[in-house]
């Protein structure tokens, strides 16, 4: 183990330079973030991920945000284990009817001020599952959404751009 740790200490990091925040996401957010929330949250955001019926593809890419290449935590984003610790809900899936109540209760359990980021094409409008009897179709049909990150699934880079826009919009106000 020591050898491995030493090697990693000596080699250059794998982490990529931060991407520019997504323009579209900035526009979507600009109207929604106010000074008061910025003061209270500073530059660090705790994220709670909620799978509301995704195929698991979005989860895989959200996981990837934590790997050495994207290193989400360097931006002050931290994935937390409970909605009660969270500032941001990162929600995936077309909201299955069976997950609707759990999503509503998770939202209610998240303290204010809070943001909801809908991830993936399913999160926007149900995606390929829109119209199914078992899907509500889109996160915003159940809880208010502040930002959409499209993609099926969005790449870690797209996720990062969306989340950075969330931070920047917060700082610029």
């Amino acid at each position: 183990m020591r050898k491995l740790l030493l090697q990693n200490l000596l080699q250059s990091p794998l982490t990529i330079p931060p991407p520019p925040p997504s323009e579209a996401a900035l526009t979507e957010l600009a109207a929604k973030i106010n000074r008061a929330t910025q003061r209270r949250l500073g530059r660090s955001l705790s994220i709670r991920q909620v799978d509301a019926g995704s195929c698991n593809g979005c989860e895989l890419e959200i996981h990837a945000l934590n790997n050495a290449f994207y290193d989400l935590e360097r931006f002050g984003f931290h994935i937390v284990a409970s909605p009660r610790h969270a500032d941001v809900l990162l929600v995936t899936g077309p909201v299955t009817v069976n997950m609707k109540e759990a999503l509503e209760r998770t939202y209610a359990a998240t303290p204010d001020p809070k943001w909801v980021v809908a991830v993936g094409d399913c999160g926007r409008d149900g995606g390929v599952f829109a119209g199914s009897y078992a899907c509500v179709g889109g996160i915003s049909a159940v809880i208010p959404v502040d930002l959409h990150i499209p993609g099926c699934p969005p790449t870690p880079m797209q996720l990062l751009q969306g989340l950075l826009a969330l931070l920047q919009a917060q700082e610029s106000r």
């Binding site: 019926g53 299955t96 009817v97 069976n98 997950m99 759990a102 390929v128 599952f129 009897y133």
Partner: peptide, 23 residues
């Protein structure tokens, strides 16, 4: 289990083969 039931089998009934492949 059953929380992520999306009704895929119902969507598949009547779909074209290309649509079905996406599901």
């Amino acid at each position: 289990l059953g929380y992520v039931h999306k009704g895929i089998e119902s969507l598949l009934s009547g779909a074209t083969i290309d649509q079905a492949a996406r599901w």
